[in-house]
Amino acid sequence: MSTVLKKTRSLEDTKLHYCPGCSHGIVHRLVCEVIDEMEMREQTVGIAPVGCSVFLDAYFDFDIIQAAHGRAPAVATGVKRALPENLVFTYQGDGDLASIGMSEMVHAAARGERITIIFINNTNYGMTGGQMAPTTLEQQVTTTTPAGRDTRLAGFPIQVPELLSSLPGAVYLSRVSAHNPKNINKAKKSIRKAFQAQMDGLGFSLVEILSTCPTNWRMNPVQSIQWLEENMMEIYPLGELKSVEGVS
């Protein structure tokens, strides 16, 4: 009898604190599967953000540093420069990355830091109860846009990989989604490419993952998948925004 599926080594065998229907659990597993397949668990350093995924150290069985809100790319820079042979990645949500941490992200990319950002876009601040994020869609209702996001007052959603794509230091930028099996498989391949680009010394890589947040979207998990498909994918088109020569 052959083994067709086994426990993901890098993932801790524990209960997740995430809400039902949230994408974090899926993405955690994808990241860990890729690390296992690359046989990098013992050379990996993950940087946890502030937000729902602040408890990464409880779920990943490798070295973890928890960073201040938005600062993970700077912390990752400090780690990678000291440990250039290690796989160093940050795992950040949209508020952490694209609002308070915008500067650290852009400049890590500009320097071409050999780090990878796993970016969870669920269009709101999940941990604090569903406030508007930089990625909140036009007219989307959140606890701080109760009448829907009015772009005249609260601005427009930010497309992160597009924003970074002009920087030569960024070598691999993609947007994937974790809402169905087909896209989950694509997401895993993209994470693998991003990590490989880092280990090949090519430069900065980022994978944005469209994610569901049923609790704060006030939906059930099935409705949230539908909402993601019908609303998010138009503003956040999937695909490889940038993949320089040598990325494989």
Binding site: R71, A74, T77, R81, E104
Partner: peptide, 26 residues
Amino acid sequence: GVFIQAESEVAAINMVYGTSATGARV
């Protein structure tokens, strides 16, 4: 050694946090 002119004081101290966590003097 490594010198980085950081994009901000905020980034610089967080780079310190990262490197210090690896055990190196920073």
